[in-house]
Design a protein around this nucleic acid. Structure first.
Length: 287
DNA sequence: CCCACGACCTGTGGGC
DNA sequence: TGCCCACAGGTCGTGG
């Protein structure tokens, strides 16, 4: 489900109910997600105050008034829902309402203010961990991460250096979180189409003019998707249950057989498996 | 270094 | 209607 725009949307939805709030009750309804939860997970978090909710790559980071940070990754199907005791304006989100998916409600956080935040994850590719804040950057999950794509650190010069001499296609390179952190299958396909770059040909051979377009197109597609509240395919919803709507603006993803939306292009979107994953692209303008 | 492939786990949608 | 297969937004590890 979640690439950077979806995780950022979740962060924005959770921040108002979590930041500055103390966790009164934490429930782990199973001992593991993708990985075992830390044995002291519930005990460590109970009574902790979340000082700040941040995002790095596709990770949510809950900074605490304790030595560790709560790190959360949504995997493919992870989702948060908020319910409030007074949640009058949020249909289907009341405490008293029947849980629509009780089988996959794995983790529950409840703040002193009475807000309940439930983590659902049918496939359980998501995970949570407690990581020492002082040595955070040394942790294997974060040490090698590339720059945030929306930051100034991710610029054309840097990408040119990364691509230089590489035979690997731009698609698989951009999916590598060490190159740039937070892109996934959808937004890589979208960005390459916008920049009219072949997903398959050697990254080192991308024409300079198109490579120069790639960085701004990545930033643009991510910013637009965040603005739209992310993309809803099967199950992604914002924390209040609202659906993201960026999927309506996809130019390639899940559009096999439909016309390329690039200006002046008469191509038809094709799908090919690349490294075991679907690549959607226009064979006409992405040369 | 590059890539293909399988694993993790569960659900859904399409074809027959 | 039911069954079976392909495939799904992400990572991680192995082996050629």
């Amino acid at each position: 489900m979640p690439e950077l725009p979806e995780v950022e949307t979740v962060r924005g939805g959770l921040a108002p109910v979590l930041e500055g709030h103390r966790l009164a009750r934490v429930e782990a309804r199973r001992p593991d997600l993708r990985f075992p939860l830390p044995p002291n997970f519930v005990q460590f978090l109970t009574g902790a105050t979340i000082t700040k909710l941040e995002r790095r790559a596709k990770y949510l980071l809950a900074r605490l008034d304790r030595e560790d940070t709560l790190v959360m990754h949504l995997g493919m199907s992870g989702r948060f829902e908020i319910s409030r005791p007074d949640g009058a304006s949020r249909p289907g989100q009341f405490h008293s309402a029947p849980d629509p998916d009780p089988k996959h409600a794995h983790i529950v956080f409840e703040t002193e203010a009475g807000t309940r935040v439930t983590y659902y994850d049918p496939r359980r590719f998501g995970y949570m961990a407690l990581i020492n804040t002082a040595t955070f950057d040394l942790h294997p999950w974060f040490a090698a991460l590339g720059p945030e794509p929306l930051s100034a650190a991710f610029d054309v010069e840097r990408l040119r250096t990364t691509f230089a001499g590489r035979k690997q296609g731009p698609k698989t390179l951009l999916l590598d979180q060490r190159v740039v952190a937070g892109l996934g299958n959808i937004y890589v396909c979208e960005a390459l189409n916008r920049a009219r770059i072949s997903p398959f040909k050697p990254a080192g051979g991308v024409p300079a003019a198109r490579l120069a377009r790639l960085v701004p197109e990545i930033k643009a597609v991510l910013a637009e998707a965040i603005q739209a509240g992310g993309s809803t395919l099967r199950d992604f919803a914002q924390t209040d249950g609202a659906l993201g709507y960026f999927q309506h603006r996809f130019r390639t993803y899940d559009r096999e057989g439909q016309p390329c939306r690039n200006d002046g292009c008469t191509g038809v979107i094709d799908r090919k498996l690349q490294a075991g994953r679907s690549t959607f692209y226009c064979p006409v303008c992405q040369k």
